[in-house]
């Protein structure tokens, strides 16, 4: 059974938990930009947390369902219409065979995940269904007229029927600070740039994408150039190319890079950053690696508890 893509939207792609285990061969992780949204949407429709779902960007898709399905949309605030009727996000919804699902309007935030019971059925590449558009791995982005196969859904669908409060898991307010651990080369910034890093607001550039966000507005400079050989980078790494516009690496990050490492965005704020749009502001607040890790673990345990509650239909 399948869904027909009437309108693909700006950038809609199949994403899951990403590709682990091949970074040593130069293969990055990819996967959903807002990982919490992916896990929660999947849990609501009874899928494994990292099952393949659709990630939409800025303008979402319009889809015709060939089979009845359970769907859930989490992440950005979407004006979700099923056969023309407004429906809530952050909860499991029933879609009948032949129904038209319109998720084209994202009101607030940059990305939403649409999960479908049984998952989107595309061939796995190196263990993952994720589109890594930069590396050319996995399926291409959706195009108008595409047909997407769906996996087999459980009947009756598992998972809670209640809706979630998105508050702890989604916030696209661009005024909220983003926690940043100063990087290995933060001390090499000149005094003005060091002050600007945590004192000024940056703006997400128009050429930002799933690989990285360019942070414009306040060019950063080093006291003297540093000669570096390529070394590991990861999601959230803030690097400084010679032009002075820092780039924060996102889901489709390369596994190594040769630019000075200015900082590392705390993982608890990774989803929050992924929800910002080009033109939105970014203001950093300093944290330590230990504190960032501790907060990440606390949030992860909280998310795991919520995922269990959804699966066990506990109120």
């Amino acid at each position: 059974m399948s869904i027909e893509v009437i309108r693909a939207g700006v950038l809609t792609s199949v994403q899951d938990g990403g590709r682990a285990g091949h970074a040593g061969a130069g293969v990055g992780r990819a996967g959903a930009m807002d990982a919490d949204a992916l896990e929660l949407a999947n849990a609501l429709v009874g899928n494994a947390s990292d099952a393949p779902a659709l990630e939409m960007t800025l303008v979402g898709p319009r889809l015709r369902f060939a089979r009845a399905a359970s769907i859930a949309v989490c992440g950005a605030d979407v004006d979700l219409l099923i056969d023309g009727v407004a429906r809530p996000t952050w909860r499991r919804l029933r879609v009948e065979a032949g129904s038209l699902v319109d998720a084209s309007r994202l009101r607030h935030g940059a990305r939403a995940v649409l999960a479908i019971d049984g998952g989107v059925d595309v061939p796995r590449v190196l263990g993952s269904a994720a589109s890594d558009l930069n590396a050319g791995l996995g399926p291409p982005a959706l195009r108008d007229g595409d047909t997407l196969a769906l996996g087999d859904a459980a009947d009756p669908p598992p998972g809670a029927t209640w809706g979630l409060d998105p508050t702890p898991w989604f916030d696209a307010d661009p005024r909220l600070p983003i926690a940043l651990v100063p990087g290995a080369h933060a001390d090499a910034l000149d005094a003005r740039s060091r002050e600007a890093l945590f004192g000024e607001a940056f703006r997400i550039g128009n050429h930002s994408n799933r690989v990285g966000y360019r942070l414009e507005g306040v060019p950063l400079t080093l006291t003297a150039p540093i000669e570096l050989v390529s070394s590991p980078v990861t999601r959230g790494t803030l690097q400084l190319p010679p032009g002075g516009t820092p780039i924060v690496l996102m889901a489709e990050h390369p596994v190594t890079g040769g630019y000075p490492l200015i900082g590392q965005v705390a993982a608890i704020d990774a989803g929050r950053l992924a929800q910002r749009r080009p033109g939105d502001g970014v203001r950093f607040v300093a944290t330590t690696a230990a504190q960032a890790q501790s907060r990440y673990i606390a949030r992860r345990l909280q998310l795991d508890a919520l995922l269990r509650a959804i699966r066990e239909r506990r109120p």
Binding site: A20, A23, G24, V229, S230, S231, P232, T234, V255, T256
Partner: peptide
């Protein structure tokens, strides 16, 4: 994951 680079190594 393990990512060897020229003079560094990442443990994921």
């Amino acid at each position: 994951d393990l990512v060897p680079a020229y003079a560094s190594l990442a443990i994921h």
